[in-house]
Design a protein around this nucleic acid. Structure first.
Lengths: 206, 206
DNA sequence: GGGATTCCGTACAGTAATGTATGGGCGGTA
DNA sequence: TACCGCCCATACATTACTGTACGGAATCCC
């Protein structure tokens, strides 16, 4: 039991013995709110309650609400790029790499609900925010380029690479959008993946 | 010039000689707000200003804010269904019908920005609203069924119809999501359309 | 032409969210 | 140990939005 004189400590944070909050802590909490209700649901008071502090802490770590949003978007973009770099196709086993990419983009999205929800929220926010729009555009382009590289490794005819990569990316994004929140269509997603794989492997130049 | 004694008329609506507002007028105005900023941007005062009235009018036509949202979603679903019924494939010229569907879903979406923005907003809202989720699900299923019917008319092998229809629908949705707000990729969309057409026509059973 | 109904304006209360000013505890540091 | 900077609490002012109560003008209906 704590001593009675403990009331000299900051009372509201008595339960959480976590030392001090960092900027990333706030951004992590923001991810939860964004995933749940989009950027319009990103309120300072809610984050503060979740973190067990008051808004005074927020306005020390961030200049204002917009600062939080911009930082969140920038961090999201950076993470998507290191994620792309991590699974950059090396061309040693292209069929397996295609399977892995489709697995991550489709099947895995069903389990990584949080990540999917955040991406959809960022995408939606990009329709009315210039900064978000530029970031989403960068990520989209990079992903399509990655797909093109993969298809080149697979031996797809040169004039088909661009179209095929875009088609596959659009299909994966569309699948994420449509599937978001639904349940029980993992089997359908699996079949879509196999169809895309057959389509890609059937479009080789040789 | 109007007589000076005209000030006895309701002054705020002096400019607009439009008689009286109907429920659909409010829903039309709501579509603009939803397209611009999503459902979180759907505020009563903004609609009233746009329509040149006060909020008193709104609370006569609608019970509350939720009533507006539900009515908006229901009307959206109804319109999507009559739209589907209008361009239901008859099977007389399936190739042309495929072209038309892809044209409407892809190319035409670039011009019908308003309709596209509303659909994306409804889709985003469906992630946190049960009613919207059910409506979007109904529309998605109906559209995939329509695609299946078209592919059957095209002579696609029976076990490929489901997968192909879903792939095409996901690709169109994904294209709308990615393309929303961008400009200058009509050419890319056109090539995607041709690729889907080739893919579909190449998967016939015969 | 008088009452009832329709449609909208006005005024009020209440809530929620942001931003700012200010102070205070706590740890590092000379 | 006394000071200073980091981190957070508190209090206040402001704005935006919702919902409701009430009244009033216009029109319909007999």
């Amino acid at each position: 039991m704590a001593k009675a004189s403990d009331k000299r400590r900051t009372p509201s944070r008595a339960a959480t013995n976590k030392a001090q909050l960092t900027r990333d802590d706030w951004l992590d909490a923001a991810a939860g709110e964004v995933a749940a209700g989009g950027f319009s649901n990103l309120r300072v008071l809610t984050l503060a309650k979740r973190l067990g502090v008051t808004r005074g802490s927020f306005y020390w770590h961030f200049r204002d609400h917009e600062d939080l949003v911009v930082s969140f978007l920038d961090r999201w973009r950076d993470r998507r790029f290191v994620e792309l770099d991590y699974m950059r196709p090396k061309g040693e086993n292209p069929e397996e790499e295609l399977h892995q990419i489709l697995q991550i983009l489709l099947t895995d999205a069903a389990r990584n609900i949080r990540r999917l929800q955040v991406e959809l929220a960022v995408r939606d926010f990009a329709r009315r925010n210039e900064h978000a729009a530029r970031i989403v555009d960068e990520v989209d382009r990079a992903r399509v380029e990655q797909n093109k590289l993969l298809f080149r490794h697979l031996g797809v005819a040169g004039d088909q690479v661009e179209d095929l990569a875009r088609l596959m990316y659009m299909a994966t994004v569309g699948s994420q959008v449509v599937q978001a929140g639904r349940k029980g269509n993992e089997a359908a997603v699996e079949r879509i993946e196999q169809l895309v794989a057959r389509l890609a492997l059937g479009q080789r130049s040789e």
